[in-house]
Amino acid sequence: MDVRRRNNVVVTGPEDGPVLVLAHGFGCDQNMWRLVLPALARRHRVVLFDYVGSGRSEPTAWSEERYSSLAGYAQDVVDVCEELDLRDVAFVGHSVSAMVGVLAAQAAPERFGALVMVAPSPCYIDSDGYRGGFSAEDIDELLASLESNYLGWSAAMAPVIMGNPDRPELGEELTGSFCATDPEMARIFARTTFLSDSRGDLDGVSVPTLVLECAHDAIAPREVGAYVHDRIPGSVLVTLEATGHCPQLSAPQATAAAILRFLEHPR
């Protein structure tokens, strides 16, 4: 299948600009990057995509087997890089995608030049000596929460997306697909995300890396940011004075500025 269509690949920014690949996390799609896109695409060639199973990706390309491990999502990233023949990619991954980027750089090291991990967490569940922030029961609760929302998902979401008088810039093209995913695929993505433990992969990161965390993040607490920074040799840790798990939405200017500053002087 055509990878561009499969992953709803969108490319923007100057053709000869250095390449930035922006990867969304669990819960939404490439629209997560909207508020930082103008700043990032001024001088960079920006590649956006949706993981299979999210956003406007091709649902027939989804299989439970492939997308039940982060390696499956990493393969999507590698596929996109190969399809567009991208080199020296600066990969910006939000949330679980930060770890997907680590795995993709392991699988195809020749294509990646830098890594930006936005609100990363290599392991969400507490275990001896490690604090991820959640227990296994908490994750079950999230899955239940997902299910109860999908009961009325389309009914609840469609009017929201259609009528949006306050933010006309979001435009009509979002209608019907904004962050809406198939419940089964979302459930698998949630399980894969929150039950993953990629702590062992951090040591293998060899490209310049920025760890971008929020000061108040309910999903990736600061201990986790410090842990990631500590485990990746030579990484840069930047803490944004932002609340929530999505600084690209809650603090877009600061987020874009931190990313661009790092890309200018990666080490």
Binding site: G27, C28, R34, V160, R167, C179, L249
Partner: peptide, 8 residues
């Protein structure tokens, strides 16, 4: 939170 931010 992301949807609220994006859509108002």
């Amino acid at each position: 939170a992301p949807l609220l931010r994006m859509q108002g």
